[in-house]
Amino acid sequence: MNKSNARLGWLFASPYLIYSLIFFLFPLLWATYLAFTNWNLIAPDYEFVGIQNFIQAFFTDTVRAAFFVTYKFLAMFVPIVVAGALFLAVLIHSLPKFKGLFSVAFFLPYLASGVASAIVVNGILSYNSPFNIWLRGTFGLDIDWLGSAILAPLIIALMMAWKFAGYYALLFVAGLESIPKEIYEASAIDGAVGWKRFWHITLPMLYPSFYTVTILAVGLMFGIFTEPYVLTGGGPDLATHTWQLEIYSQAFERLNAGFGTAIAVINSVVTFGSILVFRKILEKWGAKHGWE
């Protein structure tokens, strides 16, 4: 009985095992090796170059751009999406009826392909669009949206916030629903109502949702590819040149497979490190409000 269970267990798990061997373990080892070579994706010969790729990455403009651009995206995207998601969640939560309907409706942007939304944004911001004509006519503002090193990343951050706010809002809704009513009742006696209650009671109680949403949002910023690839191509002047764009262009446009892999390794280390720092900051804030 137990023996057949064991055999069946391995049998059922075998698709995963075979997959992991071919598409995880093997490429993992290969990547570790490639990162220390100067292979160019085509030539039969290449050399082992030690840590040269990693040193070179440090002095490469595009790699440095990717490093800083990601934090620029973080600074723009995380506050916008957290505030937006929280707003949507409070809105959904305070509706007496049709909560499910509005949850679904606010989630719809998540379905958009980055390619399609880039095309729409490009149209809205095109020179003769009603929006730009209105800006020129009313305020005399003539703005080159995608040509500005500050506005271009902001627009991409806004696109991504539009896409993810409704999704993250569901996490906040779950958090809001889990706050016990007694806490509100007790705090009402102490005179905490309205904004005061929201600020001092609700927000700290939402800490677990804040934690999850922030970590998800931070992690997302290290993997942006589609939106800048279609909308800006990384420009202007590398202002939207993300890690993924850099890895893609090094490995598949300039054919530096070894160097590209090394950059991917650096990207992973930076991502891990940054998420760790954000976790520590969040945990500190949580501890202040009694969360372990």
Binding site: F23, F24, F26, P27, L28, W30, A31, L34, G223, W243, Q244, I247, A251, A257, G260, T261, A264, V265, N267, S268, T271, F272
Partner: peptide
Amino acid sequence: YPAVILLIP
């Protein structure tokens, strides 16, 4: 584990 490392291999 960051999937991006596996992209090229």
